[in-house]
Amino acid sequence: MGSIEKRGKGSFRLSIVTGYDKKGKPIRERKNVKVKNKTLAKQELAKFEAEVLSGDYSKPNYTRLEDFYQEWVKKYAEDKLSPRTLREYKSIIEKRILPDYGHLKLSNINAMHVVNFLDDLKDTKNRLDGKDEALSPSTIRNCYKAFKSMLTAADEFDLIKNNPARNIKPPTVKQKKPLSYSREKIDHLIKCINHEPFEKQVMFWIAFVTGCREGELVALEEKHILNEKSAILFEQSLSQQQSGELLIKEIKNGMEGTASIPSELLEMVTQIKNRRKKEFIRTRDMQYDPNRVFLFADELGKPMRPDSVSQWWSRLRKRHHIDGLRFHDLRHYSVTYLIQQNVPTKSISQRIRHRKIGTTMDIYGHHIEEVDRAAADHFSEFFKQNNSHY
């Protein structure tokens, strides 16, 4: 049951009774509209009543974006984002989004605000570092993702009806040139690794054989070495917060899984594990975490930071004049090697813990096409044997 109340020239308040409280007092949903006359107001009332009764109506929220920011940090971002990504998004929001859009009510933000935000970023005048060149597509894309993250949280918290950034297309980021791979490069890399301390050799082999990430590598504990299966379980990752504190979190995309390893690597890893367990027993009262035995840690059990792995790798590259190969690229080398050995793509995708096989295809499609071309060439021998003319 609805009613209309004239509030002023061209202004009406619509009211819908949705029920009654314990005292019999009507419970109403109200909405103000600006239309020319009462006939048009009645049409708006009919639409409003249909929205309310169908459950499609959500009350306008008057929280400003800048007021919602801290709620987003505490109740959404700290749980959903890695510390590094959170730092980046906070910087973008505080420097680029809140100054221009912070005063807006969440309910008033629409798709055009997001479009205008992205369009403004293309203007060289809006750079924060003073350089006279446009922001890269990847930087603009990250700005979009930061804005979208806030609006996604507001949507999930039912503070807005729909996420206005949902259907906006950010700039396409140019795909990086495929990583140059060859067996000769791998063989050279292995020769260099053989001159490193034993622990570093083991780190290299785990990364290359399993395709794990730096954060997953340094988060490995002795319990993750599955001797009976000759496999390693990846179920957590380690990152460093801005305060310097090390944080154990779930693996990227929540994709836990095991990766089988050769017996030779299992033997190497077992040596590291036994060494750590002995140190743990000897210094139990001084251990960094009395409930965990990390594989790659100091004598008191404090695990290596992910950036320490990258720093060691950078020094190794410099000593041996190895160009353009990050530690993370061992993951790509691992996948490329398996593709060239004709391991099924689905098995590779599961091994490196991609949520979808399409992700593996997108990243490594060029290598898969090369192997597929080679597979087709094998059939040429049948045509060579057939001397008949067409």
Rank of each mutant, 00 (worst) to 15 (best):
E216S: 12
H378R: 11
K223F: 13
S263G: 13
Y144S: 05
R96N: 01
R96G: 00
F234P: 02
L300P: 05
E196H: 15
K174M: 12
V269S: 07
S349Q: 12
K6I: 08
E264D: 13
G215W: 02
Q341I: 10
D362C: 07
H195V: 06
A154V: 07
R319C: 08
S149E: 01
P26S: 05
N291C: 10
Q341C: 06
T63W: 03
H188M: 12
L246I: 03
L81I: 08
I206A: 12
N274K: 06
F204V: 12
Y89C: 10
L300S: 13
M150V: 04
R166I: 04
V114Y: 08
G211N: 00
L151D: 12
E250M: 12
G215F: 08
F198E: 14
T345V: 13
E78F: 03
H378L: 02
E279C: 04
E221S: 09
K95V: 04
D56M: 09
Q175W: 05
R84Q: 13
I206E: 03
S260F: 05
W72G: 04
D329A: 04
S310W: 12
I352F: 05
S107R: 07
I27W: 03
P137Y: 08
Y20R: 14
G324Q: 03
H378N: 14
E267V: 01
E214Q: 09
T345D: 15
K22E: 14
M304H: 15
T152L: 05
A154P: 04
H366F: 09
E267S: 12
N163H: 07
